Simulated scan of single mutants.
Amino acid sequence: MFLRTSLKIAACLLALSTPAWATPVHTFAFGQPTAASQATRTIEIVMGDMNFDPKAIQVKAGETIRFVLVNKGQLLHEFNLGDAAMHASHQEEMLQMQQSGMLTPTGMKEMSHDMASMDHAAMGHGMQHDDPNSVLVEPGKTAELTWTFSKATALEFACNIPGHYQADMVGKLTVSQ
């Protein structure tokens, strides 16, 4: 019995001290990304230079929405689902990407050799725009994001590229029962 208990404790300590080798899994209390084939409704959102149309969206808990994002502006824009606190945090990451030169007004640059040698882990989540609740859309392009909303809540959809949220490129997303 003592040996079995000691082995369990040792295994737990080893698991807690071992670094995570895989990319952390993003979990969201308000839902999860879903395959487009599972969508029950499609909503088109047009991105202008500093606005979304429509500015407000209503969905129901349990509903799977395929968002079709059309960028008719001259700048790179983002469509990101979350609450105000999530957007504030993501804006910091986007600012780091812009300051590194990776994020430009009209797109994302490929990582150079110099950037590849930087400590990206210390800068957020690997200097990538890989959040499942978010998509970047270049000027003149269309992108999609499909999401299943799990519970009633008040959210925002926003562009977190530096200055865009502050210029009112944010909309209300209400998830009802």
Rank of each mutant, 00 (worst) to 15 (best):
D83Y: 01
Y165W: 00
E138A: 12
Q99T: 08
G31P: 06
T106R: 02
T42P: 03
N51R: 09
M50V: 12
A152H: 04
F2W: 13
D130V: 07
V175D: 00
W147T: 08
S17Q: 15
H129T: 06
M111L: 10
Q96V: 13
M169L: 00
G73R: 05
A154K: 11
V59D: 01
A15M: 01
I45F: 08
A167P: 05
S17F: 07
V68W: 02
V59C: 05
V170H: 03
F157E: 06
G82W: 14
A122D: 07
G48S: 04
T27W: 07
K55T: 02
H125Q: 04
A11G: 05
G73Q: 12
A39Q: 13
T23S: 04
T40D: 14
G101S: 10
T40F: 11
T174E: 09
R4M: 08
S100A: 12
P33Q: 02
E78T: 13
V25S: 08
V170W: 14
G48W: 00
A122R: 02
K8P: 00
S89W: 14
L136I: 09
M108D: 09
A116H: 13
L16D: 00
F52I: 03
V70I: 11
C159S: 09
V135Y: 10
I9K: 04
P132C: 01
A15Q: 00
H164N: 12
F2T: 14
V68H: 14
H87Q: 02
T146E: 00
H120R: 10
I161A: 12
D119R: 03
G62K: 00
T27I: 14
Q96C: 12
L14S: 14
F157N: 08
A29Y: 12
A56I: 06
S100C: 11
A22S: 08
H113M: 08
D53H: 10
A35E: 11
G107T: 11
M102G: 06
N71Y: 01
S37W: 13
D119A: 02
M169Q: 07
S89Y: 15
D131H: 09
A158D: 11
Q32M: 10
K172L: 07
P24K: 04
W21Q: 08
M1P: 07
T5F: 12
S150L: 12
S150M: 12
E63W: 01
T64Q: 01
R41T: 13
L14A: 08
I57Q: 07
A61G: 03
F157D: 01
E93C: 10
M108P: 13
K151H: 14
G107W: 00
M102R: 15
P54M: 02
L3A: 06
M97H: 07
L75R: 14
M111C: 01
Y165S: 03
A56C: 00
I9V: 00
T146I: 05
L136D: 05
E144V: 09
M108N: 06
T5P: 03
D83C: 04
F30R: 04
G124A: 13
A143N: 12
T146G: 13
A20N: 13
Q38R: 14
H26G: 15
G82M: 08
T34R: 07
I161N: 13
V135T: 15
L81T: 07
V59E: 02
A11T: 01
P19C: 01
R4P: 05
L136N: 15
T34C: 05
F52E: 02
T153G: 15
L95H: 03
H125W: 10
S117P: 11
M1Y: 03
H87Y: 10
A36G: 06
